[in-house]
């Protein structure tokens, strides 16, 4: 029932991640071998000499590596956010995208771009975080005043998603020229092109902090399985735990959305897939879900940038194509159980 040993799963996941990253950076028009990548990493750290030409070196280290790493960070972060939200809200359909958090973050980030309030990675993320908190606050307030049951949460999420998507479109129409509009629309669908090391570092740092917070609260998350009152009677300070963990996930979502746009459904599906391997207890679930999410999105991005080469498919389009059938499968499963 609970599948393989947790340490084995973790070790396997880490190995798969390292292997995936070193293989996928070699895939593309410029042919480079994994060995070449590793040797040039050594050269960069001051050991040996790089076998790559300066152009190859630039392709690997300035283009493909940050892109591959951001895909990994994004996959890990979204899977983590989804797993935490599903448990806290006791809702198998919860994820940053479905609950409108991603839309709010998009609106915040777009406002920063279009209205020109500085366009650095940090100001983008700050705008996205404000937007994410705003939409999440709206969802929580609305669902609470509607009685707080979990279907209200999802319906409120739908309302927030619509509202903030409209606000985003409105902001873009109002004040952007044609070129910015196209860039923004492409980014809204989720895209890993145009990311740099600054994005990787920021998102990576936020991921590590939020992962740490969540791993410190694994038993708290377990306690929510039978609802908030049951959690309270197991000694959990429910309101504090909810605010802390949901704010942490909103922060991580915001950082990811401001770098790569709203990549849908990863946060929804991967936690469910991971539970099949690990069971539902969070000490096993969270780290493995993050690793599987990372490996998954690294390969999805590779597919997105190579399938129609030289044309690139926005990665959000690919995840949605995979995600919608999985979403429906989850819906059917949860219907059977109630």
């Amino acid at each position: 029932m609970r599948g393989a040993r947790p340490t084995l799963l973790l070790a396997g996941g880490l190995a798969a991640l390292v292997l995936s990253v070193s293989v996928t950076v070699t895939i593309g028009p410029a042919s480079i071998t994994p060995a070449g990548v590793w040797t040039s990493l050594g050269a960069r750290l001051g050991v040996g000499e790089s076998p790559l030409t300066p152009i190859q070196d630039g392709i690997v280290w300035d283009l493909r590596m940050p892109r591959t790493l951001i895909a990994a960070v994004c996959g890990a972060g979204l899977a983590l956010c989804g797993a935490v939200m599903q448990s806290l809200l006791r809702n198998p359909l919860a994820d940053p995208f479905v609950l409108g958090v991603s839309s709010g973050a998009s609106t915040g980030a777009v406002a920063v771009i279009v209205l020109g309030w500085g366009a650095g990675v940090v100001s983008l993320s700050a705008g996205a975080f404000l937007g994410a908190l705003l939409s999440f606050g709206m969802v929580m307030l609305l669902s609470h005043s509607l009685g707080g049951s979990m279907d209200r949460v999802v319906l409120s999420g739908v309302a927030a998603m619509q509202l903030f998507s409209a606000l985003t479109s409105f902001t873009v129409l109002l004040s952007a020229d044609a070129e910015t509009t196209q860039g923004v629309l492409f980014w809204l669908l989720g895209s890993f092109s145009n990311v740099g090391w600054a994005d990787v570092l920021l998102c990576g740092a936020v991921l590590l902090v939020v992962l740490g917070v969540c791993l410190a609260h694994t038993t708290t998350l377990d306690a929510f399985a039978f609802g908030e009152e049951a959690a309270a009677s197991l000694g959990v300070r429910v309101a504090r735990a909810r605010v802390l963990l949901l704010t942490a996930t909103a922060l991580l979502t915001a950082a990811l959305v401001s770098s790569v746009g709203a990549v849908g459904f990863v946060g929804l599906i991967l936690p469910h897939a991971t539970r099949i391997l690990t069971g539902a207890m969070h000490a096993r679930l969270l780290p493995v879900a993050a690793l599987i999410g990372a490996v998954f999105l690294v390969w999805v991005d590779t597919l997105a940038r190579t399938a129609l080469d030289p044309q690139e498919i926005p990665v959000g389009v690919v995840t949605s194509l995979v995600g919608v059938p999985a979403f429906i499968a989850v819906l059917y499963r949860s219907r059977r159980q109630t």
Binding site: G227, L234, G235
Partner: peptide
């Protein structure tokens, strides 16, 4: 409680182990 519902797929042992949460430390 009067009745207990969960969407989470757990074994009997997983559910019983929830009782240890107030005794356990983080990490």
């Amino acid at each position: 409680q009067q009745n207990s519902h969960t969407q989470t797929e757990m074994t009997v042992r997983d559910v019983v182990a929830l009782g240890r949460i107030p005794h356990r430390r983080a990490w």
